[in-house]
Amino acid sequence: MSSQMIRRAEAGTTEAAWVRYTLIGITLIFLFLFLVLPLAAVFAEALRKGFDAYWEALKEPDAWSAIRLTFITALIAVPLNLVFGIAAAWCIAKYEFKGKSVLTTLVDLPFSVSPVVAGLVYVLMFGAQGWFGPWLQEHDIKIIFAVPGIVLATVFVTFPFIARELIPLMQAQGNEEEQAAIVLGATGWQTFWYVTLPNIKWGLIYGVILCNARAMGEFGAVSVVSGHIRGQTNTMPLHVEILYNEYQSVAAFAVASLLALLALVTLVIKSVAEWRHEREMKAIGDLSPENVKAAPLDLSLKAAS
């Protein structure tokens, strides 16, 4: 190929400079308007009356109890979905069985169900008029308009997050390493702990933090089952709504700013997990068959560290 042709071919896979800059410009303006401005507005509105007013709003006992309830909810919901996510990913990714695609679709179902509908189904089960309503009342157990209902609704809404992250990852990695470990005499648990887990580590972290962000921020489903009792069944997003509807704008945005910070932390952890995962994938990719002879030393060093 002549050098002229190569140049033409390369030019053919990108656009003229003015097109490039226009497209980058439009993209940045669009993202600025739709992502950066809303994020900045949260903090600007929260600090509108100065730092003292901001601090006062956060020190309020109702705000504190909302923060506490949000953390408790996430602390129960995320581990439950973590165990489920690993179990579901193991059986879906590692084996072939009848009805696998149906099962995968059902795992995704909570993603597409409206949060409001998710809240409603628990009211129909455990509410005063629901299936178990009379029995629960007899035994003086409260689920709807109480903390258990909030946790259940949150578990439903965040149900697929970790499984969804792990299934494609474990499918892509195949079974060879695990089979080798089993053949060499490892127990199932050892195989999972020393072979599978290191491979899916970053995907798992990513899934957990996304699940956590959604669990702490869920609004629609929780709003249906909570009953909005101040200081008792208000999570942070619900507290934001109440304050906002009472025209306590600064206080509402102050609590909202904590949730926005949580979102930012989530994005940072996610990016770091992604970069680390890419780097590890690249390191493995470099171990192509012709390089393998030089590899053992490298591998043993990694295993030791």
Binding site: L31, L33, L35, V36, L37, P38, L39, A41, V42, A44, E45, L210, A213, R214, M216, G217, E218, F219, G220, M236, P237, L238, V240, E241, Y244, S249, A252, F253, A256, L259, A260, L262, A263, L264, T266, L267, V268, K270, S271
Partner: peptide
């Protein structure tokens, strides 16, 4: 990284923030 913000930002926060921006006295 920022493209994922709508996944991570609680919907209620997005709601009040967009409202504050677009209301008659908002930035936009």
């Amino acid at each position: 990284a920022l493209v994922d913000l709508p996944f991570a930002l609680p919907t209620a926060v997005a709601g009040i923030s967009l409202t504050a921006l677009l209301a008659g006295n908002g930035w936009v």
